[in-house]
Simulated assay, not measured.
Amino acid sequence: MIFYYFGEYLLLLKKVFKRPEKWRVYWKQILYEMNDIGVGSLGLILIISTFIGAVMTMQIAYQLDSGFIPNSVIGQINRDSNILELGPTISALVLMGKVGSSIASQIGSMRVTEQIDALEIMGINAAGYLILPKIIAGVVMIPVLVIVAIGCALVGGLVGGTLTDAVTPTEYVAGIQTAFKGYTVAVALVKAVVYGFIITSVPAYKGFFVRGGALEVGAAATKSVVIGCITILATDYLITALML
Rank of each mutant, 00 (worst) to 15 (best):
I2H: 10
Y9M: 03
L11W: 11
L12D: 02
L13P: 01
K15R: 13
K18Y: 10
P20G: 07
P20E: 05
E21I: 14
W23D: 07
K28P: 00
E33G: 03
E33Q: 14
D36C: 08
G43F: 10
L44K: 11
S49D: 07
T50F: 15
A54V: 02
M58L: 12
M58E: 13
L64G: 04
S66H: 09
G67T: 11
F68N: 14
F68V: 15
N71P: 04
I77F: 08
R79H: 02
N82F: 07
E85P: 06
P88F: 10
I90A: 15
S91F: 09
G97Q: 09
V99W: 07
V99P: 03
V99L: 05
S101H: 01
S102D: 11
G108I: 02
S109K: 07
E120G: 03
E120I: 03
I121L: 15
I124V: 15
K134W: 03
K134R: 13
I135D: 01
I136W: 01
G138E: 04
G138D: 09
G138Y: 01
V144L: 12
I147T: 08
V148L: 11
A149S: 14
G151T: 01
V155A: 14
G157W: 03
L158N: 10
L163C: 03
L163Q: 07
T164D: 04
D165S: 15
A166G: 08
E171Q: 12
A174S: 11
T178H: 13
F180H: 02
K181H: 12
K181A: 13
T184G: 08
V185Q: 01
A186K: 14
V190M: 11
V190S: 05
V193M: 09
V194I: 12
F197K: 03
I198Q: 04
I199N: 09
K206A: 10
G207C: 06
V210M: 02
G213N: 10
G213V: 08
A214M: 11
E216A: 15
E216I: 02
V217W: 02
A221L: 00
T222Q: 05
V226P: 02
G228A: 04
G228E: 07
L233V: 11
A234F: 12
A241W: 11
L242R: 09
